[in-house]
Design a protein around this nucleic acid. Sequence first.
DNA 1: GGTTGTGAACCACTTCACAGCC
DNA 2: GGCTGTGAAGTGGTTCACAACC
Lengths: 211, 211
Amino acid sequence: MRYHKIPDETIQRLPLYWRALRLLSENRSHVNSKVLAEIVQVNPWQIRKDLSYFGGFGTPGVGYDIKKLSCQLRDILNLKNTHKTALVGVGDLGSALLGYSGFSQLGFEIVSAFDVSTKKVGKIKNNVNVEDISKLKTLKRKGIRLAIIAVPVKAAQETADKLVRAGVVGILNFTPSYLVVPKTVKVISIDIAMDIARLPYYLPTNRAGKT
Amino acid sequence: MRYHKIPDETIQRLPLYWRALRLLSENRSHVNSKVLAEIVQVNPWQIRKDLSYFGGFGTPGVGYDIKKLSCQLRDILNLKNTHKTALVGVGDLGSALLGYSGFSQLGFEIVSAFDVSTKKVGKIKNNVNVEDISKLKTLKRKGIRLAIIAVPVKAAQETADKLVRAGVVGILNFTPSYLVVPKTVKVISIDIAMDIARLPYYLPTNRAGKT
DNA sequence: GGTTGTGAACCACTTCACAGCC
DNA sequence: GGCTGTGAAGTGGTTCACAACC
């Protein structure tokens, strides 16, 4: 019954559990679903169900061994070894991402950066040398299989195509466009503008609009 | 039947429709659900259902008037007038957000920025004066009701509390923490790290793990 | 003929409830 | 007694199919 028809929603919650466990591990050795549930703001049975998709990690009457569960989640999420990552587009957003500690904490290491601007190529940012976009082909040789796209919208698909040709199998897309890629390549899109755009909907106004 | 029990998922899709319509409006005056569906990568009947929650905007046999629908979506999403917004935390991320054109395109205007660091206070970034965090109280007087939190995790809840006290009713939270706020305040959290963390799960490996 | 709008059917995730285990 | 793991029930968003309309 393992690894079979697991809801995407479950996969989305696993990192939350994992992060909570990391914090908990500083103070205690065990946790039950009720306590964990409160931290990540979901129901206890949701957590138990999620974890049960991958097998029983807990002990009835006791709860979950934090160290052990943490390790197993890390394994499931495939975060055990560090992932060398390339960044394409070193503009405002790209630069911010280069300095973003969240990546390294999760085991991502931006080892390569690319841009089209001759102004940026050759510069060194956060210990990473910015290369010309034409050097993308070298990714395969370097064993880099993950990439972050932080280029202007119009260049997004083209960049994705190049990355796929360079052997990239996972893409973090920060542009607001749907990328067409082979089924073997996984794209996760982060579209900040679209998240932001729905905030005003929920604000108190003269309208009746509410959930 | 208007404004009653509308799925959150629908609200999340409306901005996508809106953006697609903006692009389409440059070339044509009408669009049907099939074409729009292809652009935003959802099913035609999903679009029709979503729109039907708010009333009939289309014409059978013809489709949707792009200008009209666009305008109506903007109205539903409450994006008609610009929203003055405050930014708290002018670090890497905060700075990137200050230069982010996505905000202004949606009608958000960052008119005020705050930080605790004496190094940053007093500086001017992207035409915005960085003030000391203690000046947050002035938001109410200035009529600013939206805020972006881009501070370190530990300061997140404290910042949220201050913002609520200063009359803020909508918060964009870029920190990885659950914010406790009154029910009248809407928080939208953007947790980049958690989106990123699930990418490796989908990568082809020795494991059997797949959806 | 083409397309919308929508009640009904469907399906997938969530929630429940309890057997099983410590 | 306390807590997990899970089949079964419930719920709500998605998909369908077709009547209504241009």
